[in-house]
Design a protein around this nucleic acid. Sequence first.
DNA 1: TTTT
DNA 2: TTTT
Lengths: 165, 165, 165, 165
Amino acid sequence: MARGVNKVILIGNVGGDPEVRYLPNGNAVANITLATSDSWKDKQTGQQQERTEWHRVVFFGRIAEVVGEYVRKGSKMYIEGRLQTREWEKDGVKRYTTEIVVDIGGQMQLLDGKPQGGEQGMAPRPQQQRPAQQPAQRPAQQAPQQSAPQQPAPDYDSFDDDIPF
Amino acid sequence: MARGVNKVILIGNVGGDPEVRYLPNGNAVANITLATSDSWKDKQTGQQQERTEWHRVVFFGRIAEVVGEYVRKGSKMYIEGRLQTREWEKDGVKRYTTEIVVDIGGQMQLLDGKPQGGEQGMAPRPQQQRPAQQPAQRPAQQAPQQSAPQQPAPDYDSFDDDIPF
Amino acid sequence: MARGVNKVILIGNVGGDPEVRYLPNGNAVANITLATSDSWKDKQTGQQQERTEWHRVVFFGRIAEVVGEYVRKGSKMYIEGRLQTREWEKDGVKRYTTEIVVDIGGQMQLLDGKPQGGEQGMAPRPQQQRPAQQPAQRPAQQAPQQSAPQQPAPDYDSFDDDIPF
Amino acid sequence: MARGVNKVILIGNVGGDPEVRYLPNGNAVANITLATSDSWKDKQTGQQQERTEWHRVVFFGRIAEVVGEYVRKGSKMYIEGRLQTREWEKDGVKRYTTEIVVDIGGQMQLLDGKPQGGEQGMAPRPQQQRPAQQPAQRPAQQAPQQSAPQQPAPDYDSFDDDIPF
DNA sequence: TTTT
DNA sequence: TTTT
């Protein structure tokens, strides 16, 4: 239940390959940064300006596994999540980090064009090692190592019971 | 799974008390109309103009039951759903009706102020009769017939396992 | 001014080349249909199901000209607009059509990959004929007939003073 | 122009009266914090949990003046803006603060019920002092000091040419 | 750190 | 710091 609405919608490019790890309970967590840019013409100088905004996005659960397998540096993505600010400490000083959380209730979608096939194509990456004694509740089907031509760009919303493609 | 994004976000006022009915499988369906308005000043005449847009919204499942119990004519609501156009026929002519569907994956929230208490307050309406042989999969807890002062305005997103307040 | 919120966000594929026309006041109008799809596995039969939703989208003003020049059948687009239902009559019978209106306050973005260059590339199409006596208030700069390699995918929000690329 | 989409939609309660100030160019800036809450039942303990998220929201321009006049501690608001992270320094250490920026292209709406009239009602607060030598480009019409019964809850989107009520 |  |  929510009192209020807390929704973030982003389309941008991924800054680096995702880092996926597993929580003690076996749930996957994936982190990426996503860039969105604005450009405008300065009213005074007439110069074209550009500003890139970097967003920290963290995925949980099944969607994190999909991100780990299919998202790469440079990928164009749609994501829908919620804002969350974490408190942490360094040298005894409190710091705050704001992230976009994408879990159940969120959504993601890869917007890159169709894979071209070949080794560069849309083949999923081999899955990260998961601690054997803590299996994920919803293990992903083992994906083939080699790309399939014409394999569609994956997308995901949290209500699927199956792998998203 | 979705290919693409199909999202509608509305805040408006409800045109009449919801109509709730039950599908053969026991799932609830609730229909409302929701009004949003725009006003602007006509550039030529300088006159203030106003246009009200009426939206057909249909809720399914547990959220439909909540709507049936708590939403009333005049309620101010936030809803998040998806567009769907149905085809139907009348006098041999095909017609189309576009609705906003709110089910799992959607969200709703009542934005009315605090209930004032008393008989006019936020007490849930008695539930509609449901066919006894087809119980809903997630029957709502029987709500009290009389209003409780300070009872919070209900809201709902589809991931709750319990009654929404 | 708005009382309420009326917002639609879509990502989908364009069903056909846009039709652009000009209003008597010189403003451009562009119409497209946009497909979004859902797929799911039927709980009873276990069969994979798919449903495609077709949305009527209408653009006004400068953004309509950009659509006319750059959007094509098959283009993948992000659009943000508002719902509007028009009443019309045929054979003395009232009909209703619901459209997503994208004008000032809305946004669109082409999500197709980089142009490949060459005749198939991202070169704008020649502009439609516009009635000479009714120049658009914000005429588009005449775009070159031939594609430029590396020309970026256009996007647009209504606050730009310049052509969007 | 934007490459990508950067959109935040919030409905929540305001944590304190807005602080309004004026930039050297005469533009108004208003800051608020907005609370959204989630509650859920812990799966292990069965305990009801609640988490409140506080969002920093900053308004620019005409919309900031409206916020300064009408928004108060406890107000329920809808806002639509974009994420922006600012870098600042304290004791030689870089810090980052993420805010939701609402300016042209954004939207806000007060969701509180109709004012009850009387001194507690929806009367605008007296406007802050503005440096006389740097008038705002779009000065607000001087609002009456006393409340009017039945005055509608103000709302605002950036495309209005007039005061928003 | 992405992308154009 | 809000709200329920």
